[in-house]
Amino acid sequence: MKKRLEKGTYGYMDRLKMWEWKKSALMLAIPVLVFLIGWAVMKTRLQVVTVIAVVGCLPGCNEVVHAIMASRYHSMDKKLYEEVEAARGDRMALYENVFTTYDKNYVVDCIIISGREVLGYSSEEKTDAKAAETHLTTILKQNSYKQNVKIMKNREAYLTRVKELASGEPEEVPFREDERCPGMTRDEVISFILQSISL
């Protein structure tokens, strides 16, 4: 069975890469086909169909940029995914996050959301944990959610903290339904905001 392309799930980045490249190929194939048919029928390239085909390549070229961007990243380690799944209990988890900013991108393998806690782990050496924390805290604060964001680089310490969160009761945080996300719990809204700023 084919898995849906859904942000925050295990295997998302690998599926995203394939999807973006397929879309790029299709979007570039159509204007090329239009050009070739126009050339075969009119026996010349100097025609309005050529202009249409060239302009028609622009969306495909934009899609190639998305595919190249997605190709820079890969899905997380399966063993880590299994360890987090076993440790998290019923806490909400987001996997394979690439948070984009104007200056840098932050790769965070997994995030656990529980009450005011947003606990992430990054195996990517280039990811600056403190800068990622600041970025996510700022984005959540701009959306009126004050969270304790912590991005960890030590895998064992992260798994230990996840188990601690799963074994305790989540902090009760006053919450009024967000009109942007009707019917969602507070943790689901936090998840929605984080997914919206992720690749």
Rank of each mutant, 00 (worst) to 15 (best):
M69P: 03
I197N: 07
T137R: 09
H74S: 14
C57T: 14
K104N: 12
R88D: 01
L94M: 12
G183K: 09
D103G: 06
I113Y: 07
V118Y: 06
W21C: 02
S123Q: 00
V107Q: 10
E63V: 08
D90K: 10
Q47A: 12
M92T: 11
L58N: 07
D14C: 06
E85M: 15
N143K: 15
T134C: 05
Y145Q: 04
R15W: 02
A25W: 05
S196W: 02
V118E: 04
L28W: 08
V189A: 01
T101R: 08
E117S: 13
V189Y: 03
A53C: 06
Q47L: 08
R116N: 10
A157E: 15
S144H: 15
I30L: 14
V84H: 02
K78L: 12
K7R: 15
V48S: 11
E6L: 14
Y95P: 00
S196R: 13
L58C: 09
E179K: 13
R15I: 09
E83Y: 00
G38W: 09
G89I: 08
V34G: 03
E83L: 11
S114T: 07
W39A: 12
T185R: 07
G11P: 09
L136T: 03
S167Q: 14
A86W: 07
D187P: 07
S196Y: 00
Y10W: 10
Q47M: 13
E20Y: 12
E6D: 14
